[in-house]
């Protein structure tokens, strides 16, 4: 496997559409729940251990070669908010486009054929990671880190937050990200014996509710 492939896939410049999404932080900023680096840290930590854990486990299971169609259903079951389902599929389509160009292979083509409306982003991420020669644990790390890196970048744009402070928030979360990725990869390792039901189903009801509200805003900077 290539360690550098992991950097390509996880890099903030990988063109998979994430830059237009705030991971819920735009709604949190509007509610004044996030207004400085301390509250950004709390937001990111909460998202990491809920939606981030669930996504990381789905990505790890897909990277381990489990059926993406089964995992996509599992992702739907773990994503009750329609706005977040739509976002996950949209980001899944965009990631698939970039992954097909970067690591062309039959598994990615098949995913495009089987789910033309798009698979959930973590599922695509796992299949893409596998195509790039990466492990289930790698995929879990990319998914978990993406769940905190997205809001941190968006907070810099929304709040004029000092970019060094926002980066320090991410650095402080490294151990948490590693722990979530390990937990996710462990769960993915049990799918073969116990089925997709063994994957974590952690969620944050407030993120679900504010995502629905945000989707109805007439004016916003971020798509989600």
């Amino acid at each position: 496997m290539s360690r550098t492939a992991l950097l390509v896939l996880a890099g903030g410049r990988f063109p998979a559409g994430d830059h237009a999404h705030s991971g819920g932080v735009e709604a949190a900023v509007a509610a004044r729940a996030v207004h400085d680096s301390a509250t950004l840290y709390a937001f990111c930590r909460g998202r990491l251990h809920t939606a981030g854990l669930t996504a990381a486990a789905l990505a790890a299971a897909a990277a381990a070669g489990h059926d993406p169609l089964v995992l996509d259903e599992a992702a739907d079951a773990r994503t009750p908010a329609p706005a977040l389902r739509a976002t996950a599929r949209k980001l899944g389509r965009q990631l698939l486009r970039a992954a097909r160009a970067a690591w062309p292979c039959e598994a990615l083509e098949r995913l495009a054929r089987d789910l033309p409306g798009g698979a959930h982003q973590p599922v695509v991420l796992g299949v893409a990671a596998h195509a790039a020669g990466l492990t289930a644990s790698d995929a879990a790390h990319v998914a978990a880190f993406g769940h905190v890196a997205g809001p941190a970048t968006a907070a810099v744009r929304l709040l004029g937050l000092d970019p060094f402070d926002a980066t320090a928030v991410l650095a402080r979360l490294c151990d948490d990200v590693d722990a979530v990725a390990h937990q996710a990869a462990d769960a993915a390792g049990r799918v073969a014996g116990e089925g997709a039901g063994v994957l974590p189903a952690a969620s944050s009801p407030l993120l679900d509710i504010t995502a629905e509200q945000h989707a109805a805003w007439p004016m916003r900077l971020f798509a989600s």
């Binding site: 999404h21 949209k90 486009r97 968006a154 744009r157 929304l158 900077l221």
Partner: peptide, 20 residues
């Protein structure tokens, strides 16, 4: 198309939403 406060990114660096 929504551009997340970076209109030039959406037309140059990460064109996936516009291609869609």
């Amino acid at each position: 198309v929504e551009t997340g406060a970076c209109p030039h990114t959406a037309i140059r660096d990460d064109i996936s939403a516009n291609l869609e």
